[in-house]
Computed example of a mutant assay.
Amino acid sequence: MIGGFSIANVLGVPVGTQIGQMAGWQTAFIVTSLVGIIPLALMMVVMPKSNTISVSSMKQQFALFKNKRIRLAFFIPVLGVGSVFIVYTYITPLLENVIGIPQQWISTVLLAYGAFTILSNWLGAKVAQGNSRVKLKVIFIIQAMIMMALALTLSLPWMALLSLMLVACFSFALSTAVQLYLIDLADESSAGSKDFASTLMPVASNLGIAVGSVLGSLVVDNVGLEYLPWAAVVFAIGAFAVTSRCHQLDQEHMGLTPLASAKAS
């Protein structure tokens, strides 16, 4: 799923931008709607025709949110993905009006950005191995530093483009680790809600996209495009803080488990 999203960035965003520039933004939305018919048709062919039976009740599924660690972990992708999309949502006007990239090169830059997001999937697999919370904290520190570098190099086109490509490289590095983390937490607290837990990552990511886009619009309207990376820095630091707290709670939980087991025995 994450890989598909990255490929969509590689192809869909540049093509949509090119269509918008050539035929108007309304046409880009019409083409997007028509393209949506293709996955609809594929789903009708591939998806099972028989009804599936749920193995757990809705009450069991939503019991997941009784776990404080899960509620907190949900906000890691909200802030981490939100940080990227504060900038990415407005990347075209940022490229044109602040960095100074000619309009005819915008689609090429977006294509390169999308290609680098594929590398972030590979990086995400590495982050998910071992103690992922420690690695996630490093990722968010790096993300904050890259956003800061972007903010400081907007007047230097080549340096700004390099910073943007680095943003792309780390854009989805959190996804696999957080997905597995949420499923592991669900397995600990409410095994019947593991399927539901697997949906939390895309939900949180989409919420992050929405929140990041809204915050970006407020920044653009009130202080200007050039301040978008600074807002992204704040979100990246927030993601680091939430991840650090999750890591702390994990350590406390592991420290209490032996004691609880001894009492039980």
Rank of each mutant, 00 (worst) to 15 (best):
A173Q: 02
P39I: 11
I38M: 14
K137D: 11
F240E: 07
L94G: 00
A236K: 05
M22C: 09
G3C: 11
G224W: 05
I142G: 07
A231C: 04
A231G: 02
V219M: 08
P202N: 03
L110F: 01
G82Q: 10
I7F: 15
D195H: 14
L256Q: 14
L225F: 01
I106N: 08
V31Q: 07
L166C: 07
I37G: 07
Q143I: 01
A197N: 05
L94Q: 01
A168Q: 06
A115V: 14
S107Q: 02
R245P: 04
V138P: 11
L11M: 10
I209F: 07
L161H: 09
M1L: 05
A144M: 12
S155C: 01
A125M: 15
G124C: 09
F5A: 11
S171K: 09
T92F: 10
A63Y: 12
Q143R: 00
L259Q: 05
L162F: 11
P14L: 11
V55E: 12
F140D: 00
A204Q: 06
L259C: 08
R71T: 12
Y113H: 02
Y227D: 06
V219P: 01
T32K: 08
F5Q: 09
G4H: 13
F65R: 08
A262T: 08
E226D: 03
K263E: 02
G24V: 02
L64S: 06
F5G: 11
A125R: 15
V242L: 03
L119P: 07
T199C: 10
L164V: 03
G124S: 13
L72Q: 01
L42P: 03
I86M: 15
G238S: 13
L34S: 15
G224D: 09
S83Q: 06
G224F: 04
R69Q: 14
K137Y: 04
I76C: 12
T199H: 04
I237H: 03
G216T: 09
F240N: 08
S189P: 00
R133D: 06
L249C: 06
I106D: 10
L182H: 08
Q179E: 13
A210F: 05
M148Q: 10
A186M: 09
T199G: 11
L166G: 02
F140R: 00
L152F: 03
I142W: 05
M22V: 12
C246K: 00
L152G: 06
L200P: 10
Y181T: 11
I101N: 02
R71K: 13
N67D: 15
A151E: 04
T243L: 05
F170D: 04
A151P: 00
W25R: 11
I2V: 13
S198N: 03
